[in-house]
Design a protein around this nucleic acid. Sequence first.
DNA 1: TCCATAAGTTAGGTAAGACTAATAATGGAA
DNA 2: TTCCATTATTAGTCTTACCTAACTTATGGA
Lengths: 235, 235
Amino acid sequence: MKTPSSSIQDYLKAIYELAEECAPEPVTTSLLADRLGLARPSVTGMLQKMASTKPGLVEYLRYQGVRLTPAGEKVALEVIRHHRLIESYLSEALDFPWDEVNHEADQLEHVISEALEDRIAQKLGYPELDPHGQPIPARDGTINKRQEIRLSELPEGSVAVVCRVSDQDPAILRYLDQIGLRLSTPIEVTDRGPFDGPLHVRVAEEPTTHALGRSVTDRVYVLQAEEASRSSTNG
Amino acid sequence: MKTPSSSIQDYLKAIYELAEECAPEPVTTSLLADRLGLARPSVTGMLQKMASTKPGLVEYLRYQGVRLTPAGEKVALEVIRHHRLIESYLSEALDFPWDEVNHEADQLEHVISEALEDRIAQKLGYPELDPHGQPIPARDGTINKRQEIRLSELPEGSVAVVCRVSDQDPAILRYLDQIGLRLSTPIEVTDRGPFDGPLHVRVAEEPTTHALGRSVTDRVYVLQAEEASRSSTNG
DNA sequence: TCCATAAGTTAGGTAAGACTAATAATGGAA
DNA sequence: TTCCATTATTAGTCTTACCTAACTTATGGA
C-alpha cells in the first residue's frame, strides 16, 4: 500500500486520538474539524474522499461520523509512533521542554524516514513511553494500554500517581509543570466539589492544594495503588 | 517577510547551488528543471510567479534564465544552513553515512523550527562545515568561502588535500568512501590524460591509483599546499 | 544567410486540499 | 408530533504546483 499523504495521516491520527479520548463512536465531523483546525465542510469532503479512494482505512457513516478499520488504525499507530518517538528524542537528546515537543513533532512526523526513526529509537534505548507518559506503539502497530483512569474520575481522598498527560495544550503542560505535577508524581484528591466543579489536589510532599478545572483533570491520567506499582514511568 | 513556501525555498536553494557550481549566469531554466526533477514548463511558470509575486528575491530574464538578488541569496542561505546543519547532526549524532544525509535533510529542512536548529547547532558546537566539507552559513546569511579548486583542475603531479565533495550523488559518495577518498585525505594526481579524459589519482598512503572521470573530478574540491595548512576540516 | 535543432514559453488541464454560502438531516424540547 | 437549533452535507470557488502538447525564440553550422 502506498503511504497515505500527509494530510490523510493527520486525519487518521486525529480520528484515533479522539476515539481514544472521548469515545463518541463514531468520531464526529465537527470534533475532527476542531481538532484539525479546519472548516467542517473540508472534513466532510476529506472523509468522503478517504472512504472512496482508500477503501479499507475508514468507515464513513453519513451524518454520523467516521470510524477506523483495523487497517486504518494500523496506519494511525504508525504515525503516532513517529510522533511519540520524535517527542521523546527532542526531549531526551535535545532538551526540549515538554510543552513544545508536540508542535515540533507534528511537523517532523510526516517527513521522517524509517531509517531515521530506527536510529532514534535505538539511541533512546527503545523507549516505551513518550515525555507525556503516552505509550509508543511498536513497529508492528501494537500498543500497550495500562489501567489508567482520568484524574477527574478519582474519588475524593484517594491517592494515585500521575502516569500520563495529554500533549495537546502547551499552556496546560506549562501549568502542570509549574505546580510540580509531573510524571510519576504522587497526588491526593483532597476535595471534590459537587458535580464537575474543580478538584482540589495536593501534589507530592507539598502543603498547598490546587483547584483544577475539568479541562485539566480530564487530560491527566493516573494509576491507583496496585496498578502504579506494576509500572514504572520513564521518558 | 513571510517565509516562502517550501517549494519556493527549493527553487532558491537550487538556483544558488547551480550558480555556485557551474556559473552559467543567469541560471538556465532546464538546468533548474533537471536539478529539481521537474518539467521545464513548470520551472518557467514558477520563476515567473516568483518574479512577480515575490519581487526582490529573483531577477528573471525571459529566455535567458534567473539570478538571485541579495535578498534571494539570503533566503537561499538560510535554507542551506538548515540543510547542512541537519546533515551534520544526522552524521554526528545519529551515525548516518554521508551518502544518505542529503536525501534525509532535503525532507527535514523545510519543517525544522529555528528553536530546533539552534539546539542542533549548539549540540554540535557550532560547526562550520557539514559532513561533505561544505561551509555552513551563519545565521546572518554570511558564508565562508575558501580558496578551493576542483580536482579536475589540479595539474598533473600536484598534491592536495580533499576539502569538499558535492553531496548530490549518493553513488559517487559511496564510491569515494570505498576508495578511501574522504575529507582531509591528501591525494596526488599521478597522470592526467589528454583533454578531459580520466584523471589518475593516488590516495594518501595507498599504492594503487584510481582513474576518475569528469563526473567525479568536477564534484571533488581540494586545497593546495598553502591553503590546506590554513584550514582544518571537521564534520 | 538560412535553417534545423535545442531551449524556452504559452495554453490548457489535473489533483490536492482548503474555503464560504446555502441546503438538508437529526434529535431534543415543547 | 411538530419545530427549531445544531450538526452535517452539497455546491461552487480558490490556490498551489505540477503536467503535456503546441508554439516561439535563439543559436550555431553549412
